[in-house]
């Protein structure tokens, strides 16, 4: 089955997500859960580790949004807010608009997630736990400011939780109402041909470039975290 060749009109499935995007997705899911439990239980070393990994992944995903595969690029899926509303409206009318990658509403979801997560990690770097643990950049600001940033860090997390809930409501809407298994696509990387617009042919950037970028981002994150 020629999954990897989008031009193969006979293939039952079309490849839409590259491995870096899929790995990014499931890694952040794991890291958010880890960060949450660690902060809740007071395992701040673990929290710092998961947060630093998150920083590296975010830097990677933002870069990949510029130089990565077509379905990963901001230029491909960030559309005007009007386009997003028009899309939601057509969904509401029971139409079946198709998109190989993110739909116009989903594109904004990606932007919102990346922004929230960046804010989460950035505020984390300046936070403190009031006891022995300090974010690696907390000493760059006054104790008062660090305290305020810490409470912001908590508030942003609630926004993140709300967004995740909305995200799941959307994903299951597709699965249960429209019978489109987007989760399977995010796992395997491919969608059934009938869910991909006629003639759509995502272009994929070579994987080694992703790993090279990820290594650089991990280096930057490590440097930031160890800079104090």
């Amino acid at each position: 089955m020629g999954v990897s060749d989008p031009q193969d009109v006979n293939a039952a499935r079309v490849r839409v997500w590259d491995a870096p995007v899929r790995l990014f997705h499931w890694a952040i899911v794991l890291l958010i859960v880890t960060s949450w439990i660690a902060a809740d239980q007071g395992y701040m070393r673990v929290h710092l580790w998961s947060g630093s990994a998150m920083l590296a992944l975010l830097l990677f995903r933002i870069t990949w949004g510029i130089v990565g595969s077509s379905t990963a690029r901001f230029g491909d899926f960030v559309r005007s807010p009007r386009a997003a509303f028009r899309y939601l409206y057509s969904l509401g009318r029971g139409e079946k608009p198709l998109h190989a990658g993110h739909n116009p509403a989903g594109g904004w979801m990606v932007v919102a997630f990346l922004a929230l997560l960046t804010a989460q990690v950035t505020t984390g770097l300046f936070s403190n736990d009031g006891l022995k643990f300090m974010g690696p950049l907390a000493l760059l600001v006054s104790a008062d400011t660090s305290d305020r940033i810490t409470s912001l860090h908590g508030t942003i997390f609630y926004c993140l939780l709300a967004s995740i809930w909305l995200h799941l409501v959307a994903v299951f809407f597709y699965l249960l109402v429209r019978r489109e298994n987007l989760v399977g696509a995010m796992l395997t990387g491919s969608k059934p041909r009938h869910l991909v617009p006629e003639g759509a042919a995502p272009r994929f950037t070579r994987a080694w470039l992703a790993w090279a970028i990820l290594a650089i981002c991990a280096g930057i994150a490590g440097w930031v975290v160890r800079s104090q």
Binding site: G92, F172, L175, L176, V177, R178, R179
Partner: peptide, 19 residues
């Protein structure tokens, strides 16, 4: 084409699960 649950039923379900 296979049909899924209605949007109405789905969102009632979402409300129940959220609660």
């Amino acid at each position: 084409m296979r049909n899924g649950v209605s949007a109405r039923a789905y969102f009632i379900g979402v409300a129940v699960v959220s609660a």
